[in-house]
Each structure stands twice: as C-alpha cells, then as structure tokens.
Design a protein around this nucleic acid. Structure first.
Lengths: 197, 197
DNA sequence: CCATGATCGTCAGTACCCTAACTGTTTGCG
DNA sequence: CGCAAACAGTTAGGGTACTGACGATCATGG
C-alpha cells in the first residue's frame, strides 16, 4: 500500500482516475464498468477476508456485527437490530436462531410487551466479540489496504454518502441515528415500555 | 458508463471527506465506520434498485450479468463464466439451472471435451438482455446518482482498484482479462496480475 | 494399455437475504 | 367494551454464495 505520493490525496485521486480510464480493464469485460457488480464483488471479497482472518471462520461478518450491537445495546428487540444493520426481520430471526443455537445470544419475551423478544449476548457471545475485535478491525483495514491513506478517506466518504442517500431505495432502510428520535412508531425507548403499557 | 466532466474533482472530494468527518454519523452506530458493512449494505441496495427497475423484477442482477456474458461470448463453459463474474462453479451451475428452466439459456455437452457443457443464451434470453439493457444501465447509474459526476469517477476508480488488488483474497478470483489469451486450458493466469500490459 | 492425476460438472449442506402470508399481542377508536 | 388496525415474530419459499465430496471424463506416464 505504499504509493509514491500519498501526501496530497488529490494527486493520488487523479492518478486513480487516469488509471481506470486507461486500458487497464478491456472493454470486453462486463463487470468493470458496472458499479453494482463491482460492489457485489467487493462484498464477496470482504466476506472471504473476514472468514479467513477472524475466529477461524467460526463467525460470519453479519453474525459478528449483530453480536457487536448486542454487546453495545443489550435487550433490544429484533426489529431494532434489523434497523441497525439494515436487515430484514426474517433475516434477523434467521441469524439469531443460529446464534442462539450456539449459545452466543439469548432471547426472552419482553414482559412489558409480549410481542417482542429482547435479545442479548451471552457471556460466551460477549467474550467472542471482545476476543476477536482486533482481528475484525484488521479485516476491515485489509479491505482498504490497496488504497493510500488519503484515498481511504475519500472512498469511505463517498461510500457512506451512497449508502446514506440511497438508503430509502433499499427495501430495508437502516436507521440513521441509533438512539435518537426514530419516528414515534416503534419508538424503541428502552424505558418507555413500563410507562407506556 | 461514461460520465462526462472529469474536471474539478478536487473540491468535491474534499467536501465529501469533510462531510463524513462531521457529526453525520453518531458513534453509536457500528456500521458507519466499517467498510465491509457499508459495502454489504450498498450491494443490498443495488439489488433492490435493480429488481425495482429492470424487467419488473423478473431477473436478478447476477442472472442478467450472466446472460450478458453469454450474449457476448456464446459457447463458453461454466468455469469460464465463473471467472468472468467472480463466481464459484457450484453457484454458476445453480444460476444456470434456473435460467435453463426458464428457457433463457441452453447447455450442450462439448463434443470435443465431454466434461464441459457449453452454454449459450436462447433467443428469448438474448431478447431479454437486449430489451432491458437501458434499464440496467439506468439502475447502475442510479446507484451513483447521489454523487457528483467527478465524484463518480473517483469512486469507480477506487472501487475498481480495490476489487482488482484484493481479487486474490477472495475464494473465487475473477479473471482480469476477458478474451485476451486465457487459452482453452483455463490457465488460471498466475501471472495474470499483468494488468499493467 | 492401464493407472494416476487433473478437470468439469453436480450434489449436499450451510449461511445470507428478500417477500408474502400467517400467528399472536397491543392499541385505539367508535 | 369490543373489534379492527398496527405491530412483533415466525414460516415458507425463492435466490445468491461458499465448501466439500463425488462421478465422469480427459491427459499422462509407465
């Protein structure tokens, strides 16, 4: 990841553009000029990297992400988890079922609202998150390793913006702010439950 | 995907970085500073956009991509398709099976090498590709719509580079060059990183 | 000419990801 | 109060993606 000029960002970016405009990717290939396919491919690569580096492949990126959220915010319900991760509720249930089978999370029916199930990481689950946090970080960094530091910033900025702005276009939109606001429907206020009933 | 205007990227890029560094994404969220999750999410969004816009959701991005390749290069075998798209051979077989069931592709055993099956798009398949090409393009453009033209170039350049350079880290590496060489022997191009030609 | 190894495709199994329909619970309004 | 609407979770079903094992087919070398 050592580029001759990572000092200015600008220069590196121009170089990158020039490179892509050059004959690097011959026009025969369907993939290289369709952002959707490149994103799919990069996602695929990230999963492979993650599995190859974190917890001997015993935990997937999405499982790890879900566990991370549970560690940070115990006793949230499944819909909220879905919003945090941008997942469908059926999918959340699916993943949770696997994690529960492995005793990494536990679910209990919310006594204050019996429709809900409150989820939280078990000691084993929390331990797993703690132990592999560094590897997870490394795996994230590895994905961006081919870019110079300045380019990483640019890439992340653009990527965030794309996700944020296109958020609504996805079926499952992920909530922009975790604890704040979130439209009154399902206001998820952790304490509001008892006051509300 | 030719985006005009590549002048004046610099200012827009700096603005993007500044934006992301701002308080847009509160620290409570796991997602926003982990590239892997953002990429996953963007992929997800792209699929939703594609299905919502192309062929009334009757064809998925990967199916369309596969069909596109078949139109461009009739009579290729399944492994080669996998290399073009960055897919596992089991996965290719799976997708092909669905497309074949819908009479969009046909497969015949290669008489010259009976291990192989040569695939090609049927008239119906080719027609489908032709008819929805514009919508597919629009769906690709829609993904990048939130970015200014200059930013799109930058993003695509960085994205391409990430895919290209991390290619080997994925389980299924996609071949860098389409028709160039890659003789019948599926040479796996160990030197393949020859993108520099 | 046959044994060995490489190659291509398939199958089974697992995980992720969505939609749509269904069950139970809560809420709200007449 | 009572019932309809809204809500949380589950189930069923289709599609993407990988691994590992297997059968069939070629390609070599002894």
């Amino acid at each position: 990841m050592r580029y001759p000029d990572d000092t200015a960002g600008t220069r590196a970016q121009r170089a990158a553009v020039a490179r892509s405009r050059g004959a690097t990717h011959p026009p025969g290939h369907i993939i290289w000029d369709r952002p959707g396919y490149l994103v799919r491919r990069l996602h695929q690569i990230h999963v492979a990297m993650f599995l190859g580096r974190v917890a001997e492949g015993k935990v997937t990126p999405i499982q790890y992400g879900l566990l991370s959220i549970l560690v940070r915010r115990p006793n949230i319900d499944q819909l909220t988890i879905g919003e945090e991760l941008g997942l469908d509720r059926a999918n959340v249930a699916d993943i949770l079922k696997r994690l529960e089978a492995r005793k990494l999370v536990a679910r209990v029916v919310d006594p204050g609202n019996r429709r809900r199930k409150l989820c939280l990481a078990t000691a084993r689950g929390a331990e797993l998150v703690r132990r592999h946090h560094a590897d997870m970080q490394a795996s994230q960094a590895q994905l961006l390793a081919p870019l110079a530091p300045a380019e990483r910033e640019v890439f992340m900025a653009l990527l965030s913006r794309l996700v944020e702005r296109n958020n609504a276009s996805g079926r499952t939109s992920l909530s922009d702010r975790p604890e704040a606001a979130v439209p009154p429907t399902r206001a998820a206020a952790p304490c509001g439950r008892s006051a509300e009933h």
